[in-house]
Amino acid sequence: MSIVIWGIIKFIVVLSIVSVYVLFMTWFDRKVIARMQNRVGPKLIGFHGLWQPLADAIKSLWKEDTVPDKSYKFMFWLAPIISITTAFAISFVIPFAPPIKTASGIFHFSVAHLNVAILFVFAFLGLSSYGVLYAGISSGGSKYPFIGAQREGAQMISYEIILALSILNPILMSQSLNFETIVAAQTHHLWYVFYQPVAFITYLIAMFAVAGKVPFDLPEAESEICCGYFVEYSGMKMGLFPFAQYIVVLVLSAIMVLLFLGGWTGPFWSGGFFAGLIWYWIKVAFFIFLFTWAWATFPRYRYDQLMDIGWKILLPIAVLNIFWTGFALTVGLPFF
């Protein structure tokens, strides 16, 4: 019974933490990009514009919610819901802090502590692209969303393969699909980034593509297809797509840290719950910042170039890397 109550409490806490994170992530994005571009950014509402996201949220709630006449109404409504639900679902298996030992056992800081957490993440990452696809197809023959959805479909198929193939290496090394076990395995060795630099880099590139962020933000390339799949959306329904995207950014950064950078372990100040917590969030915040940094810096790739990078360069490298890992583990090379 207490498991159920704890589960509900955790569910509510994580739901609100992630929502608040997304709100202030928009503020962070705008502020950082503004600084990079010689501007000030949001300034007027609250301390350095800190309440700007709240004002934005209130504004978008009051916006008129238009639904095109020709759209498939049911799918049109369903699309943002799928996006947001799957994004939240992924965030429920991510540990938000190192586990602590209590009298009654180990307390996990994730809503669902699964032994197949990575599998769950990938299942729902795959599903989350359905939100985008539905949005594109249900917009009543509007062509920009259609092209955006086409691009999203192709991009997700190509890059989730690469994402999965690069994650396979840490899984092979740790023999587990559980985040906490993988982190624990890294405490015995070095972090996996030192064993698997190639997988680290392929994951890094694929991470940008799966999240649909610059330089791979083709499904919503605003200067080419006017924001792509959510052209026909307005108000809060439109707001849910970027909302989901920010959660995916958080989740992918967290997975990156858990699998390759030793999660809550740190080089010189470790042990203890708070040390772990701070190390973990410093690393995650760095990758979240990386997304923003890339946004302000890079131009956008072209559609065919994106496919070339995926299928002709990254995929062979990722597959060869798995062969190498398998070989190294079977033979038992000293560092593996």
Partner: peptide, 13 residues
């Protein structure tokens, strides 16, 4: 031109 290709920053410079 840079904004069209997706690079946002040169515009402000």
């Amino acid at each position: 031109h840079a904004l069209d290709i997706g690079a946002m920053t040169p515009y402000f410079y």
